Amino acid sequence: MQNRTDDACDVVVVTGTGGIGSAVARRLGSGRTLVLADAFREQLDRAVDSLRAEGYDARGVLADVSDRASVEQLARTASGAGRLTAVVHTAGVSAATASVRAILDVDLLGTVYVIEAFEKVAVRGTSLVCVASVAGHMASIGAEDEAALTTAPAENLLAVDAVTALGDDDTVAAYILAKRANLVRVQAAALAWNQRGARVNTVSPGVISTAMAKAEADGESGEHMLKMLDACGAGRPGTPGEIADAVAFLTGPEALYVTGTDLLVDGGQSAWIRRHMQDG
C-alpha cells in the first residue's frame, strides 16, 4: 500500500545500503517515503526489495557520492518526492579495503558533495546527519591545514598540504584525515543550514559490527582494535541499531536545538585513549 497521492509525504534519504545504512532506513522509514542511494545496483536492489517486503515505501536511486553531479541529481530527485525530512549519509569506504584515492574521493569529497547538494534543497525542518568516525577525533592536523579542510572549495581540497603529503599506502592516515574533514565541514556548514531553518550534524561511530568493521578486524590492526574495546571497558563492538538510534535522536524533535556538532558513539574508546591508554 502506497501513500495517497494527495498527501504531502515526508521523505527520508539514506546514502549507502550497508549495515548502518540499512539499520537507519528501518529506524526512520516507517510511514515515510524512503529514498535509498548506493553506487552498486545489485546491492541497492537487494536493499530496496527487502524493505518493500517489510512494508516500507522504499525506492532506489543509483548514485555515486564521489561524483558531484550524481549527488546533485539525487538531491533533486529526493526533494521532488515530497517534504525532505531527514538525510542520512552513511556511504563510505574503509582503510582496510580501499585505496588512498578512493578514501579521499568517497569519504572526503563525497561528504562535501552531500552537504552542499542537500543544503540547496533543504527546507525548514530538514535534518542532515553525516556518519563520520571516531577516527576523526584522533587526527593531529596543523591549524592551517584544518582551516583549509573546513572551508576550501571541494575542487581545491585534494591540493591541501595534509592531503598531498599522504603516501600511496597511507590508507589509515587518509581515513583519519577524511573523517576529521567530515567533522569540521559540518561545523562550517551549520550557519547556512540554520539560515534555511534546517540542521546538520555528524555521528562518529566507534567499532560497529558491520561487514566493513569485520574487514578491519581481519586486517593488520584488527587485534589491536579488539584489545582496545576490552581495555576501555566496553567489551564489545556497537551495533548498527545503536547508531540508528543516535541518528533518530539527531533527526527527531528532541534535537531541534542541536546543529553543527558531533555525537560520539564509541563505547568510551576515545575517552580511554585520551585519559587512560598511557596507564596501560
Score class of each variant (00 low, 15 high):
R76P: 01
N182T: 09
L256M: 13
M1E: 12
L177N: 04
D57C: 06
G125N: 11
E146N: 03
N156L: 13
L263Q: 05
L108A: 03
Q43R: 15
L51M: 02
R83A: 10
A244M: 06
S204M: 04
Y175N: 05
S221Y: 04
A271I: 09
D38S: 15
V48M: 10
A102W: 10
A117S: 14
L74D: 02
E119I: 00
T239D: 12
A147W: 10
A69K: 12
R124T: 13
R41V: 13
R185I: 11
D64S: 07
V134Q: 10
P240S: 03
V100Q: 03
G31T: 04
V87W: 01
V114H: 04
A215E: 15
L157K: 08
A234Q: 06
D169L: 05
T111G: 15
A213T: 14
S66A: 15
D168P: 11
I141H: 01
D10N: 13
V13E: 11
Y257H: 14
F40K: 10
Q43M: 09
D168H: 03
L84T: 02
D107W: 04
K120V: 14
A198N: 06
T151K: 08
E220A: 14
A69Q: 11
T151N: 08
A165D: 14
V186W: 02
V207N: 02
A143N: 05
V184E: 05
T259C: 07
V61L: 11
S221F: 05
A246W: 08
